[in-house]
Write a protein that binds this DNA or RNA. Sequence first.
DNA 1: TCAAAAGTGTTCTATCTACACCCATGT
DNA 2: ACATGGGTGTAGATAGAACACTTTTGA
Lengths: 217, 217
Amino acid sequence: MSDARASSAPVVAAIVAIFAVRDGRLHVLLVHRSGPPEEDTWALPGGRWDGVETLEAAADRVLARETGVQDLYLEQLFTASGLDGAQPSVAVAYIALVEPSTVRLRQEEAWRPAWFPVDDLPLLAFKNNEVIDQAVRRVGAKLDYSNIAYGLLPEQFTLRDLQTTYEAILRKDLDRRNFRKRMISTGLIEPTGATRREGAHRPAALYRFASREPVVL
Amino acid sequence: MSDARASSAPVVAAIVAIFAVRDGRLHVLLVHRSGPPEEDTWALPGGRWDGVETLEAAADRVLARETGVQDLYLEQLFTASGLDGAQPSVAVAYIALVEPSTVRLRQEEAWRPAWFPVDDLPLLAFKNNEVIDQAVRRVGAKLDYSNIAYGLLPEQFTLRDLQTTYEAILRKDLDRRNFRKRMISTGLIEPTGATRREGAHRPAALYRFASREPVVL
DNA sequence: TCAAAAGTGTTCTATCTACACCCATGT
DNA sequence: ACATGGGTGTAGATAGAACACTTTTGA
């Protein structure tokens, strides 16, 4: 059907680890593979690169397809070859950070997407467990010296919300006072002046990120 | 000559930013392009990926071809698409660190390689100036919390050698006493017991890296 | 008045920075 | 003896970690 060199025309795909914090736990979006290869397993969503758009555009397209959101935090992680053992393939992995309430998951039954807590994943196709591990480590490392958490939070949020997000990613408890001091002193966030009341206790001051573009300290 | 879909069979290549410290300055290895595209400019050495080997093996092959050395420090930087505007292309960029005395540059006149100081580069093909910028930043960032400098130094070295290497990459002078204290306290290096005499002054103690595999603190 | 989360300061410790003099050697 | 780079310690500043009580609200 195809000549011998067909095997040297590689497939280039973007795969995206889409993260969100839900109920205080970090989740990643996976799709149920409804066809070969690796049928009937879960894996990171991906899409073939068309050779025209940039790789980042391909990743953004995957994100939009699965979640309906776009133009959020998107960062390249690394590139792996041979994840699909059956043919020459290159997968360029990206990290995306989304705020759950903005997301409308794609609804089709085939290749349906679902959130999984990152610390309780099944065995995934294409060594995607390792990809997700590295992605979580990368996000955790950048939390401390950048504003990337803006991707995971709504426009306005309380310091408690922010801390819960940090704790979900770092998987450890943080001291409330020290956290507050450090966050405010970085200048990455600023008070909006508004407060939020919910429940029988003092209302919490609301904050926003000073910038919703990536900033590195 | 080829059907319309030829444009969707992308070229995947590994390109390698090979660094060495020479005369106290950080240098990068470039090759003079003796054919299209971008003929007669300088660019990072690269090689097409064959679809069978891993991408890292392709990068290692480029390194070995240009320098004769192999199995040194090699780390993936990032992947860019469309660097070659003429066709669908993906370039996976790697960083390699070598010790100049171990290197024998490829001698052919065509596509000849040469060392360039990173702070005095010509305008390179395929936006390689940006690639090198990012690579230098990455190496600088990792110096402080890893042993990657082992790639740039011989088996044994003095603390002065090590400091010179750091200063070349970070482009700033470091305090000799503080540098020594920090390096020794990390445990990444250890004294060999030997000394080196050269010139009319006290001999310098020689050190080695405790591990010549990548270690992150 | 009680429960529940918000908000706030100080002390201690570890780490980083700045800085100057003596040591071993070759000429 | 002198010139050259190797080797060492201390004091001050800064950043991070530990820790407990008061405030505001809804029920």
